[in-house]
Each structure stands twice: as structure tokens, then as C-alpha cells.
């Protein structure tokens, strides 16, 4: 078991007039090497939850165990934990700062105190993995396009070689093509690097075709969890939470209502096409 969260609570500005309870008794486990999606509408506590995973926020109460280790127990282990858990923030391109793409990506490995050769190898591997061509490595990150910037920023986290990669809305604000590219690359990373990936999103479509398991968070509590098929079948429950199932799931439901004989539990475009063709034969 990679990650185990027990009774996690978090309140912002605790004890002041602006106190805001953002997480309430969160319990969950995430297996090593799995690909998990975290879904919830804006303000539901997704970012708060994932920032606990590498000790950027500390729990008000509760515990977070990673590979059995309580990550808040020992301050001296902070660096090791932040290396183990890579967190890509929402709009990560806003954190780019260095003169060149290469230097920016090497910021993390340098902070980890690695040797020059090791840094070089990691940076090149990370940039290649996110599909940034070597011609761009010596350019200023600010000259790149939005999608490229974001991929450079993701490479900056990948270069730390985390065992657990957490991405907070990595596709937000990109055009459809940029979205698909990034999401496909994340899927690929999961497969080639065999790392645990937690993908935060409020878009069902993005998550549906990628992840193995979905956690639904609402008002700071995990309210549903299960395989995509189980989650997306619960259209009413999702709607009650202010979310929706995938568009495909709605189309399939409407087609069923119109009398077409289709199987349940279809929520991606690819599966839907196959099922509809089969039904029409």
C-alpha cells in the first residue's frame, strides 16, 4: 500500500474569524503503482488534500502514511518525502523562473544535491518524456507556448524521479489538443515508469479514459470511490454532488430509453462506438 490516509482533517486560518474547514475525516488508501483519479467540483478540497501528501500542509488531525511511514513525524525526513512524492500544481507554468528550459528543470535535482552527471541525465530524460525537443532546451521558458510551458513544468517535477506523482488539474486551461497530449503523456509515464499517479480533475471525460480508480470528494469528504464503471453508472449520485457523469454515459442512457439494447457501464467514446455498432448489426 503506497498511501494510507486516516481521519485527515484540515481547517484553514484555524482559530480566526475566517476559519474554513476544507477537509473532514478523510480516509483512503491508494495502492502502489495504481493510477487514481480525484474528482470534485471547485472548492471541494482537492488541492488541499494533495498538498498534504508532500507536507506542504500539515494535518489539523489525522495521519498520512506513505509506505508505512508517518510523513509528519520527522522534520528531518521532509526532503526525502518531497522527493518521493512529486506534486505538480495547478497552472504549474506560473512557477517557471530560470533563464533556460534546461536550467529550470534542473532546479529540483539540484536542490536534491545530486551530481552534475546525474542531473544532466535526469533532466534530459524528463524533457524527453514530456515531449520537449532538444532544440528548445536552451530557450527561455517564457518563449514557449502554453502547452509547452506546462510540459516543461511537469518535467521539472519528473526530474526529481518521484515514486508517487500527483498532478493537480494538469489539463486545466489548455485547448483540446494540448489537453489530450498532456493526458496521454501522463498515461504513458504511468506505464513506462511504473509509478503511482494521482490525477486531480473536475472533468469526467479526462478521467474516464485514463484512471483505474476514482475517488469523488465533496465538501472535504470522500463520498464515492470505486472503478470508473461503478462511479459513472451512478449518474444521480454524481448529479446530487454537483458533478455529472461523462457525456457518453448520458447518450447511452438516452439511447437505452429510446429502446436500443445497449449494455450498461459504458462511459468512454471508444466503448460507446463499439457497443452502438454492435447493437446496430
Amino acid at each position: 500500500m503506497a498511501i494510507e490516509i486516516k481521519d485527515l482533517c484540515h481547517t484553514y486560518s484555524r482559530g480566526s474569524a475566517f476559519a474554513k474547514k476544507a477537509l473532514n475525516q478523510v480516509n483512503l488508501t491508494i495502492d502502489s503503482g495504481s493510477f487514481v483519479g480525484l474528482i470534485g467540483h471547485t472548492g471541494s478540497g482537492k488541492s488541499t488534500l494533495v498538498q498534504h501528501l508532500n507536507v506542504l500542509l500539515r494535518p489539523e488531525s489525522g495521519q498520512i502514511l506513505i509506505d508505512g511511514e508517518d510523513i509528519n513525524a520527522d522534520k528531518a525526513r521532509l526532503k526525502a518525502i518531497r522527493t518521493k512524492v512529486g506534486l505538480v500544481f495547478q497552472y504549474p507554468e506560473h512557477q517557471l523562473f530560470d533563464m533556460t528550459v534546461y536550467k529550470d528543470v534542473s532546479f529540483g535535482p539540484k536542490n536534491a544535491g545530486l551530481e552534475e552527471d546525474e542531473i544532466k541525465e535526469r533532466v534530459e530524460a524528463a524533457l524527453t518524456l514530456v515531449g520537449i525537443a532538444p532544440e528548445l532546451w536552451e530557450k527561455s521558458p517564457f518563449e514557449l507556448s502554453g502547452g509547452q510551458k506546462r510540459r516543461v513544468a511537469i518535467a521539472g517535477v519528473l526530474a526529481m524521479r518521484p515514486e508517487i506523482l500527483v498532478l493537480d488539474e494538469p489539463a486545466a486551461g489548455l485547448d483540446p489538443r494540448g489537453r489530450n497530449e498532456i493526458l496521454d503523456q501522463i498515461k504513458q509515464m504511468h506505464e513506462t515508469l511504473k509509478i503511482t499517479v494521482i490525477l486531480v480533475s473536475h472533468s469526467m471525460e479526462d478521467i474516464a479514459r485514463l484512471v483505474e480508480r476514482i475517488l469523488v470528494i465533496s465538501h472535504g469528504e470522500i463520498v464515492l470511490s470505486g472503478a470508473p464503471a461503478e462511479i459513472f453508472a451512478q449518474i444521480e449520485a454524481l448529479e446530487a454532488l454537483g458533478l455529472s457523469s461523462t457525456q457518453t454515459a448520458y447518450i447511452m442512457r438516452d439511447l437505452q430509453a429510446k429502446g436500443m439494447s445497449l449494455p450498461d457501464n459504458i462511459f468512454t467514446v471508444e466503448d460507446a462506438v463499439a457497443a452502438i455498432l454492435r447493437a446496430l448489426k
Partner: peptide
């Protein structure tokens, strides 16, 4: 707010 976010993001990359 922005500073808080950037600071956290760099800390996640090991900034001290």
C-alpha cells in the same frame, strides 16, 4: 495568494 502558491510549488521541488 499567488506568492503562497508559488512558494509551495517551489518547495515541492525541494526549494528551501
Amino acid at each position: 495568494e499567488e506568492m503562497d502558491k508559488i512558494m509551495k510549488a517551489q518547495m515541492a521541488r525541494g526549494a528551501d
